[in-house]
Computed example of a mutant assay.
Amino acid sequence: MQSTSTINEATAATAATTPPVSDSRTWNRAFGDIRQGFRSRELWGHLGWQDIKQRYRRSVIGPFWISIATGTMALGLGFLYSALFEMKVQTFLPYITAGFIIWQFILGCVTEGAETFISNEGVMKHLPAPLTVYALRTVWRQILLLAHNMIIYAIILVIFLGTLGSEYKMAKTDPATGDTPGTLHPGISFDMLLAIPGFVMLVVTGVWVALLFGVISARFRDIPQVIQSLVQLVFYVTPIIWTPDLLGQRGAAISQAAVQFNPLYHYVQVVRAPLLGQHVDWWSWLVVLGLSAIGWGLALIALKNYRSRVSYWV
């Protein structure tokens, strides 16, 4: 009887001295972080809006400098490359403007997303919040920038509205007009609303990109520099300021590789094509949906294993 009592006391003492098993590296904590992050929309919404206001504080025009800068760049590239490629500026300018605006959104989600937790170091140490809050802050800021930039696209559509429809009909009836299929634009129509689901996929992708790249960059500080170097190359490889059919027969293989095996092209196309009144190929949707699923899976793995370490890494 005494021995049994001694064994029980020893077992209780051992259990008392054994530290409890942490549940920080569980799927429940990872999914809980995402749920709490989306529920804290007032927090990340306010922080993202304050980022825009802080950037243009004491400015007379304010955030509309975003639109002016984007419009200047789009006009410069549009007139320059339309002359180099011998294309009609009234059809090429809407194409390059839409692509450039969407590209800026993707670029911001990737480059600023990689520094999401690094740039929020001070906030993370003084304001405990789910990691998803900081990723949503970054993406919400890019959405606000995109909203300002879309003003430029709307202005260009209004300016060339009468020309777009006539050029589209002429190209449809006369293949020798010289317009490339990538720049044809029938004008304003309800088909442009199909850009909304494409934009939703961009936002969904932007969140997992900020989460995944943010965690990796917090551990390895060279990653943001690598991304900055690569995006410059990817911009020229992706059909943003050129159309795939411009390469002709000689560059058919290069064109197919730059289009079919370039995921960023498909992300751009699911939004740009409806804005231009064009049809989105099923392959583009397949690539976007597939990469979104894979990306979210990797982001969840990163949250599961390293969520609790990010605050120490930054």
Results as ranks from 00 to 15, higher is better:
184 L>V: 11
144 L>W: 01
212 L>W: 14
306 Y>W: 15
288 V>M: 06
254 I>N: 01
258 A>T: 09
80 L>E: 08
305 N>T: 03
273 A>C: 06
290 G>L: 14
294 I>K: 01
32 G>F: 03
50 Q>W: 13
102 I>S: 07
182 G>Y: 07
193 L>R: 00
44 W>C: 12
110 V>F: 03
314 V>P: 07
212 L>M: 06
75 L>S: 03
30 A>M: 07
248 G>R: 00
123 V>C: 04
39 R>C: 07
126 H>S: 15
127 L>N: 02
180 T>F: 08
190 F>P: 09
233 L>S: 01
195 A>R: 00
241 I>Y: 01
190 F>N: 09
21 V>Q: 06
123 V>N: 04
18 T>F: 13
71 G>P: 11
267 Y>D: 00
150 M>D: 08
286 L>K: 00
313 W>Q: 14
121 E>C: 09
202 L>N: 02
183 T>R: 14
18 T>M: 12
58 R>L: 14
302 A>Q: 02
196 I>C: 09
22 S>D: 15
181 P>K: 06
271 V>I: 01
30 A>D: 07
155 I>E: 10
200 V>M: 07
129 A>S: 05
89 V>A: 15
209 V>L: 07
120 N>T: 10
210 A>H: 00
304 K>M: 05
72 T>M: 12
41 R>I: 14
205 T>E: 01
285 W>N: 11
286 L>V: 05
24 S>K: 15
182 G>R: 03
78 G>A: 11
311 S>A: 14
268 V>D: 05
93 L>R: 13
278 Q>V: 07
141 R>H: 12
286 L>W: 03
188 I>W: 10
261 F>E: 02
146 L>M: 09
79 F>T: 14
18 T>C: 12
22 S>M: 14
9 E>V: 02
298 L>R: 00
97 T>R: 05
